[in-house]
Computed example of a mutant assay.
Amino acid sequence: MSNAAFTLVMVPPLSTETRAWPDRLGKTVPGITVLSPEDPDAVRAALARADAAYGTLAPELLGAARQLRWLQAPQAGPPPGFYHANLVRHPAQVTNMRDTYTDHVAAHTLALVLALARQLPRYVREQAAGQWAPDWSDGAVLPLAEASALVVGTGAVGAEAGRLLAAFGTHVEGVDPRVTEAPPGFTRVLPPDHLDRALGRADLVILTVPHTPSTEGLMDADRLAAMKPGSYLVNVGRGPTVRLDDLVAALDSGHLRGTALDVLEREPLPADHPLWRHPGALITPHVAGAGPHAAERRYEVLAENARRFAEGRPLINVVDKTQWF
């Protein structure tokens, strides 16, 4: 198959890891010309001749990209505002970086679940205070072999987290708008209209969903109230899916026993926010995806799509722009 010549613009700002990508792409993708302009006028001039771009295109930059056919998002779930109305209407395909951190995020998810199940947040606080206070009561831990988990979002991360959790003997169900066949370890995957009923059966609710128009505020006061009394909420997806004020209220009332959050509605979480000191909360600062090889995996997605674009083949990780994922 012959390769068509095309121009790809690396939209600034570029990180330290991405500065080497233009040269690498030029050497490995036949027919590609990679531009990495710095100043605003040069960026607009480059976009005017671009067939493809990597980065974020605000409306004014997208307006300069008159022949753009493909935009590679730099993240799996870009920040709010990336999928603005002009981009949604634009004919260019958008691809994202999903499935580049699956193993790291799934492992982090299990670490959070195990910490909640064994009361580690409490014991860490007592260690810091120099207190010896063992709890041997029957309700001190959540026995995972007797527990039920609901994974909301059974894409790559959710499927892997559920598989790992099932290895502990946990009964795992999923909810997803696209996935219908149960991944390994899951008993079944339900459509989104079953969410409210499924919440009441789960000892653990694990959110891996992206931030989309339909998931923003997904876990509000009503949905938190629909959860099983004494259950736990874990969020490793995106912060805007959980209303923090409603979550604090559910913890304060005792309806929820605990929560573990790697992503939050407000990031960074203000130092005076009650969740920092809440005895039922465990917080990590949006680091579930941390781990080796992340930059190389992201480059490989870009390079694979560049090769496919040059050859006229379907791209991977194509996004439904109206749903942001």
Rank of each mutant, 00 (worst) to 15 (best):
S2R: 10
F6I: 01
F6P: 05
L8R: 03
V9Y: 03
M10K: 02
S15F: 10
T16K: 13
A20C: 09
G26N: 13
P30E: 13
G31P: 07
I32A: 07
T33H: 10
L35D: 04
D41L: 13
A46Y: 07
A48M: 03
R49E: 14
D51K: 03
D51C: 00
A53Y: 08
L62W: 11
G63N: 12
L71D: 02
P74E: 11
P78V: 03
P79E: 14
F82A: 06
R89K: 15
H90D: 15
Q93R: 15
R98Y: 02
R98V: 03
D99N: 12
D99C: 03
T100N: 08
V105H: 04
L116P: 00
A117F: 07
V124K: 03
R125P: 05
G130R: 02
A133N: 14
P134G: 05
P134E: 07
W136G: 06
G139K: 10
V141H: 14
L144E: 00
L144R: 07
G162N: 00
R163N: 08
L164C: 00
G169W: 09
G169P: 09
G169S: 09
H171Q: 14
G174R: 01
R178M: 07
V179C: 02
T180M: 06
A182Q: 01
P184H: 00
V189N: 05
L190P: 00
P192G: 03
A202W: 03
D203F: 01
H211T: 09
T212Q: 13
T212I: 05
P213H: 07
P229C: 05
N235S: 13
R243H: 15
L247Y: 04
G254M: 12
G254H: 12
T259I: 08
D262G: 06
D262V: 09
L264Q: 12
E265S: 12
L269I: 11
A271Q: 14
P274Y: 06
W276V: 05
R277D: 12
R277L: 11
R277K: 11
P285E: 11
V287M: 14
H293A: 15
A294P: 00
E296Y: 05
Y299E: 13
E304L: 12
R308S: 09
R308V: 05
F309C: 09
P314A: 00
V318H: 02
W324A: 06
